[in-house]
């Protein structure tokens, strides 16, 4: 056979093999990380985790109740503030801002904030909230998470509203509906699945965030519902416990890590399923 042809084919086979190897490499990491999490975390995953607070050093009884509650509180604050803001801002860009010269700038800045390092957002909230309030607090932690939520929700909300066909809006306007009702009753409703997807993805993103909480919410050994004080939360508790010399703390950290990862992955898969349902309709 023609030697050039053999050479070309050999090179093609090599590249195909390398691409296959790359794909296996990528999937293998996911498998290995999940395996480690289940292997180390499953043993400590029992009822006590949800009913008891974090134990003092050396103790062998306790759970993660205060950390779970604290994480929930801050995630609710973050998503509760960030999601409406992001949604409204996305609405402006998609519905009103077509001729506003500010719109491209806002879109561009938002895309940068979307991938800005989360530790920088922690520094920002430290300077803007923690210092004036004279102390670490659940509110500061929640606000830091809100700053992370806004760009994610804004981006998906704008994209999803753009997918709503214009004739729907025109039909509603022709019936005499004012602009704001067209958006709220027509555009939001037909983009609902996409909007929910965006919020779920944003929740997944902040549920495991650690860096911005390190010096905004700090952490706490005790159960607390006071929003103006430092509050326990899962990621920082894991961070502190896993580096400790106490086996029981380490065990709790691994169980907490498994819990967070499963939550985040479930949110991701849920968002994807809602998104896919929309497409198939």
């Amino acid at each position: 056979m023609n030697p050039i042809y053999i050479k070309r084919r050999r090179r093609d086979m090599t590249v195909r093999f390398l691409c296959l190897a790359a794909a296996i490499f990528g999937v293998a990491w996911l498998a290995m990380i999940l395996f480690t999490l289940f292997y180390n975390g499953l043993a400590g995953l029992n009822f006590e985790i949800f009913t008891r607070n974090t134990p003092p050093p050396g103790s062998t009884h306790g759970g993660l109740l205060n950390a779970i509650v604290g994480s929930l509180i801050m995630t609710v604050i973050g998503v509760g503030i960030g999601a409406p803001l992001g949604m409204l801002a996305g609405t402006y860009l998609a519905e009103y801002g077509k001729h506003d010269r500010l719109s491209p700038v806002i879109r561009f800045i938002n895309d940068i904030l979307l991938s800005a390092p989360s530790i920088i957002i922690g520094l920002f909230i430290y300077g803007a909230v923690v210092v004036p309030m004279r102390g670490f607090s659940a509110i500061a932690g929640g606000l830091a998470l809100a700053v992370i939520v806004i760009p994610v929700v804004l981006r998906t909300a704008e994209d999803m509203l753009r997918l709503v066909p214009n004739p729907l809006r025109e039909a509603a306007s022709a019936l005499g509906l004012p602009r704001s009702l067209v958006i709220r009753k027509i555009a939001y409703r037909s983009a609902r699945a996409g909007l929910i997807t965006g919020v779920l993805l944003a929740t997944a993103r902040v549920a495991g965030e650690t860096a911005p909480l390190l010096f905004t919410a700090l952490s706490n050994q005790f159960f607390s519902l006071d929003l103006t004080r430092s509050i326990a939360n899962l990621p920082v508790t894991i961070n502190n416990f896993v580096q400790s010399p106490y086996p029981y703390w380490k065990q709790l950290a691994w169980s907490g890590a498994l819990l967070i990862t499963l939550t985040v992955l479930a949110l991701n898969v849920g968002a994807r399923m809602i998104g896919a349902e929309r497409k198939s309709k």
Binding site: T210, W254, T261, V264, N268
Partner: peptide, 23 residues
């Protein structure tokens, strides 16, 4: 495979840290 790769992006970074440290 596409979903597996995307889930890799969803894993919180602290988990990567623990895994890198212990495994």
């Amino acid at each position: 495979i596409g979903i597996a790769i995307e889930l890799l992006a969803g894993i919180p970074s602290i988990i990567y840290g623990m895994w890198g440290f212990f495994v």
